[in-house]
Design a protein around this nucleic acid. Structure first.
Lengths: 209, 209
DNA sequence: AACTGTGAAGAGTTTCACAGCG
DNA sequence: CGCTGTGAAACTCTTCACAGTT
């Protein structure tokens, strides 16, 4: 219908965070740009995809903008999240109480290891994968977080897709196969470190030139 | 000197991973593309930035390509990493033994909380921030990982920059100010979840149309 | 006067399509 | 023949610059 560019979607959560931390009632694109560390034309163009919510000569009404961005991001409703893989990272995420900036509730934590099942983490009990599909349907889990080792990530992703989950956050260091209609976001520590390494090496080279 | 485009740098770690998991001695751009789930022309163009390491009619020698990509990413040397902020996530990362695909060693874990100092996590002792700058210099820590709450992330980033760190991985949900020459990579769970929410909402809308 | 909203230019990225090499 | 390497086209994203509104 509308079609907000992906690059803009990536920035909306940042604007939202800056706005909620900002005191005054109105804000100019220039000020918001400084908070988000981007160019002010970018802010104006990004916001223009949501509609014309600014006032020329004044700026944007902060509350109204917060509402519009939240609405566009689908944050007016709560989302149920499940986490599969209760290793160090999975447990850390499960305990990470205020899951991001609210609106997301962890309503299921799973692991394949029988030794872990029944143990508690972050106030929830670790469940076996056998009950996964049923839990997804019953609790309307819509976002799946994968924190398993790479070797089981694809298998878990397939289970998630079969259970009807269409949005996956993958922390396992592997590229997942998935149907067209499923959105997989990759959060990959080792990739990021390697990129750091690249730019470090590059920077070291610069000194010499 | 050369100038590999950022978009290509982002993909090199993925190619590297696919290649190290691949059996045969040579690989075609088409096969690598399938493993990395990208277009084969993209693979060829990406690899061409490293030099002409393919053989027409045959493909790329896997070992040679692994070496060339590793070299380009600066993975032929080891990097010392420090982690600041020993909350759930920081501890999880500290314990996460095989830090990514080797080449990275956690040689310092820090926290500002006196109660945490001296405790052990993942085989290392949590150190106070007072010794941070000295540790960075002595142990040549070159990559800083921030896993503090958002409220102290900027302060920690400033300390890192002052200590001479030029590469930062920021897990705190905030945008950091930094000098030109410092590379900050953001890994932001709440942002990713909000993007999931956006595409979930969008997908729900599609059913109706 | 101050600021938004946006056409248009510019930069970067992806993809196509094919010449050229092994 | 099969596959790489790459110009060129197509697309996306960023930035500029300014007309238009309050």
């Amino acid at each position: 219908m509308k079609g907000i560019p992906p690059a803009t979607v990536q920035r909306l959560p940042i604007y939202l965070r800056c706005l909620t931390e900002y005191g005054p009632e109105t804000i100019s694109s220039e000020t918001l740009a400084q908070l988000a560390r981007v160019n002010s034309a970018k802010v104006r163009k990004d916001l223009s995809f949501l509609g014309s919510y600014g006032t020329r000569g004044v700026g944007y009404d902060v509350d109204h903008l917060v509402y519009q961005i939240s609405r566009e991001l689908g944050l007016t409703k709560d989302w149920a999240v499940c986490i599969v893989g209760m290793g160090n990272l999975g447990k850390a995420l499960a305990k990470y109480g205020g899951f991001g900036e609210r609106g997301f509730a962890v309503l299921g934590i799973f692991d394949a290891d029988p030794d872990k099942i029944g143990k508690k983490t972050g106030g929830r009990t670790i469940e076996p994968m056998s009950g996964f599909e049923h839990a997804v349907k019953e609790r309307q889990l819509s976002i799946g977080v994968i924190t398993t080792p790479a070797s089981s990530a694809q298998e878990v992703a397939d289970l998630m897709v079969d259970a009807g989950i269409t949005s996956i956050l993958n922390f396992a260091p592997t590229v997942l196969s998935k149907p067209e209609n499923v959105d997989v976001r990759r959060v990959d520590l080792s990739t990021e470190l390697q990129i750091c390494s690249f730019y470090l090496t590059r920077a070291a080279g610069k000194q010499a030139s």
